[in-house]
Design a protein around this nucleic acid. Structure first.
Lengths: 234, 234
DNA sequence: CGAGTCTTTGAGGGGAGTCAATTCGTGTGG
DNA sequence: CCACACGAATTGACTCCCCTCAAAGACTCG
């Protein structure tokens, strides 16, 4: 019931760079879909082990983060002990930007992950010189807001619709059309969708029985009937 | 069931100004808690009648809005006809900023309202000259994100907790400690909290029976036991 | 005063939660 | 390499909260 997150704040700094001069920075910039993202080109690459805390709720928000490899979840603990997973972040996604003074969420590495960490001061200084940085910041914030609004819509729907939505979203975000890799546990999914692990499991089974999905092991799912799933979410 | 929003796009422009020279602009700036908010000092004051559409979902996001008097609700329509009210905005609140290219929500005036409308280009130009504008933008976005996250936490709670949370929040935002004026209908409240009007009505009755609140007419509620309500939300 | 809308109240049903037991999967140590 | 342990995931039975449907009551405004 009380899903306490593992607090193993083990962090290993692997590589540092502050400019585009190093090859790693180049590859990071190339990974970006929008080439001219100034924030993507600076920062420090940090390696977090599976389950490691990246930042905690209430901590001062000093950095902006970007997933390079792996996966990250942000979460909040509610009074009754429930854990709400606000968002999963996959390679290319920014997070930690939404905070103003202090973090409203905690962030944990779902898997071993490489995260690009950029100081907010560095970004703030950049906004004075380059006007497109402000636009990029607002674009990231807008994306975050849009996503939260989608999630709010989701929480008024049925379990089946939530699961379908989640699977479709994961398939879109990971790029593979009809094969979904789930880096997170059932508990993570349940806490994200506002369900219980039992309901998640039952609903997945139901979708498999109707032939819309095909489970390939516990954390790999093939989306057989993309049309039916999409229709369910509409 | 299908809660269709009234589409009465009647809008009356009452006053225009683009600088601080006019007295209305001064009063708007004075209303602001943070005196040095650059956005609050410019724009055009528009009057919207009760039920009027301020902008529609999918429309290009050209302006940023600020409530001066009245109340505004932003909403989205889900596939099954349900309406999700994303947020209520009260005097002093900004809205419409979260959109990137096009509005993700529709906005309607709950009551007759005066809205300060500012062109995004004007703000964008200002960011080049004054660096604090970017910070203000991010502060508004952060506030919006925090609020959405709170609402997500809310939607996993019971009806009683949602109602209590809503009443406490409204009392905080309107400034009056234990007297809540509800400018919106039961349907609006229900669509905001992810409940039905029947459940809203029943839950309010239940809270009144336990003596924690005291209804003063349909749209005025006295919060008798603030401690108990706060404990419920925790 | 009356038509329409909003709100309240009641009865019944369904979907997800809770509790509990079993199975599966992974890593560990003998 | 196998046996064991531990957690993760599945499956089942039962309960409860909220939704649905329906009708009556209260309020608003012409």
């Amino acid at each position: 019931m009380l899903a306490k997150a593992k607090a193993s704040p083990e962090r290993c700094s692997v590589n540092c760079y502050d400019d585009c001069s190093l090859p790693q920075a180049q590859s990071v910039a190339r990974m970006s879909r929008e080439i001219d993202e100034p924030i993507a080109k600076m920062g420090r690459l940090v390696h977090y082990k599976r389950g490691a805390e990246i930042f905690g709720e209430g901590q001062p928000a000093e950095y902006v983060y970007r997933v390079v490899t792996g996966a990250v979840r942000t979460s909040r603990i509610v009074n009754n002990g429930r854990r709400q997973i606000c968002q999963f972040y996959l390679p290319g996604d920014y997070f930690g930007l939404e905070a103003h003074n202090e973090q409203a969420t905690s962030a944990f590495a779902v898997n071993d992950s490489q995260i690009l960490v950029t100081n907010r001061h560095t970004i703030a200084k950049l906004t004075c010189r380059r006007r497109d940085v402000t636009q990029q910041l607002m674009r990231i914030a807008s994306k975050e807001i849009k996503h939260l609004q989608d999630q709010i819509l989701l929480l008024t729907k049925t379990a089946e619709e939530r699961i379908a939505w989640f699977l479709l979203q994961m398939s879109q975000r990971t790029g593979s059309a009809n094969l979904v890799n789930l880096p997170m546990s059932r508990q993570d999914i349940a806490d994200h969708l506002g369900l219980t692990i039992e309901t998640v499991s039952r609903t997945l089974k139901q979708l498999a029985r109707t032939g819309w999905i095909k489970p390939l092991g516990s954390r790999r799912i093939q989306l057989v009937r993309l049309d039916a799933l999409t229709c369910l979410v509409s």
